[in-house]
C-alpha cells in the first residue's frame, strides 16, 4: 500500500507532534517528525514529502504572540520551498499552533503577498482554555481536499489561549464565507447525538469557546490545499479518547482525507 511521506516539523516548544503522527499513521500515512534544524541544514528536504502537518504546541514559547517566531522562520528560511509546495497543490494542515503559524506566515487564508487581514489572537475570555467542542467541516468548503468530508462533524478538544479568529473588519469575514475559505465551524454542543441537525454556535460560549468571528474554527486557502484549525482532531482518533457520550465525532476522517490528498 502506498503510504505517502508526511512531514511533521518540530520546533522548540512543539508538543502535539506525537499524537499528530499517530493520527497520520492510523489514516495510512507515513509520518516523519523532523526538527526544523534538520530542514535548515538540508539533511531533510521539504520537497521530498507529499504533505506537511504543522502540529500544535508553543513554538518558541509563543513569547512574541502565538506562532509568530516560527512563522518568521518559515518566511526567512523556507519561503521558496514552501512556495513551491503550495504552488504544486500539495496538502498542508496546521493544527492549533500550526494554524497560528500558517496564518501569521500569511499562508492562510492567503495569499502571502497581500496585507494580512485575518489573525488569531487572545481568546475573548483572556486565558488559556481546554474543553471538548463540536465542529463541522463547513458545507461551503468547495475546492479543498476537505470537500469530500464537507458536513462531517468532529468532536475533539481545544487547548489554547490565542485561538480567536479576528478580522480587520466584517467584510473580510463575509468575503471568506463567499470564497468558501471557512473550513471548520464551531457548532452547538450538548448531549444531542450529532446525527441530529446541528446549529452553528453563533458566538455563544462555550460552544464557540474563544469568541471567533463567524464561529470560525478553521480556514483554508483559495486553492484549498492549505488548511488550518484550532481544535485537535488528532486527540480523537480512537474511541476511548472520547468522553463518555455518543459514539460519534471521530477526527480520523479529517486525517484520512489529508492522507488521501497526499497519496
Amino acid at each position: 500500500m502506498n503510504r505517502p511521506p508526511i512531514l511533521v516539523p518540530h520546533a522548540s516548544g512543539t508538543n502535539r507532534d506525537g499524537e499528530a503522527a499517530q493520527a497520520i499513521e492510523l489514516a495510512g500515512g507515513d509520518a516523519r517528525i523532523v526538527h526544523i534544524n534538520e530542514l535548515r541544514n538540508g539533511s531533510v528536504r521539504i520537497g521530498d514529502h507529499a504533505a506537511i502537518l504543522l502540529p500544535g504546541g508553543f513554538s518558541y514559547g509563543d513569547a512574541l504572540g502565538a506562532g509568530g517566531r516560527l512563522a518568521l522562520e518559515l518566511k526567512t528560511w523556507f519561503a521558496d520551498e514552501l512556495g513551491a509546495f503550495v504552488d504544486a497543490g500539495k496538502p498542508m494542515l496546521g493544527i492549533c499552533n500550526g494554524f497560528q503559524v500558517l496564518v501569521k506566515a500569511g499562508l492562510l487564508p492567503g495569499p502571502a503577498s497581500v496585507r494580512r487581514e485575518v489573525t488569531l489572537t487572545e481568546n475573548a475570555r483572556g486565558h488559556f482554555e481546554c474543553r471538548w467542542v463540536t465542529l463541522r467541516v463547513d458545507v461551503g468548503v468547495s475546492s479543498s481536499w476537505l470537500a469530500g468530508a464537507a458536513g462531517t462533524v468532529v468532536r475533539c478538544p481545544i487547548a489554547h489561549g490565542e485561538g480567536r479568529v479576528a478580522v480587520a473588519d466584517r467584510s473580510v469575514a463575509q468575503e471568506m464565507e463567499d470564497r468558501g475559505l471557512v473550513a471548520f465551524r464551531y457548532m452547538h454542543t450538548g448531549a444531542a447525538p450529532i446525527s441530529s441537525p446541528l446549529e452553528p454556535a453563533e458566538g455563544a460560549y462555550p460552544a464557540n469557546p474563544n469568541g471567533s468571528a463567524n464561529d470560525i474554527a478553521g480556514l483554508c486557502n483559495e486553492s484549498g490545499s492549505v488548511v488550518g484549525l484550532m481544535p485537535h482532531p488528532e486527540d480523537h482518533v480512537v474511541s476511548w479518547q472520547r468522553p463518555s457520550g455518543p459514539e460519534e465525532g471521530s477526527g480520523l476522517p479529517i486525517f484520512a482525507a489529508f492522507v488521501e490528498a497526499a497519496g
Binding site: N15, R16, E129, C130, A159, D235
Partner: peptide
C-alpha cells in the same frame, strides 16, 4: 480548564465528566 488535560491524546478519564 486553564490546564491542558488532553495533550498527548492519552486521557481516558479526564477531570470533568458527563
Amino acid at each position: 480548564r486553564r490546564y491542558d488535560h488532553e495533550v498527548r491524546g492519552g486521557t481516558v478519564v479526564r477531570p470533568f465528566v458527563g
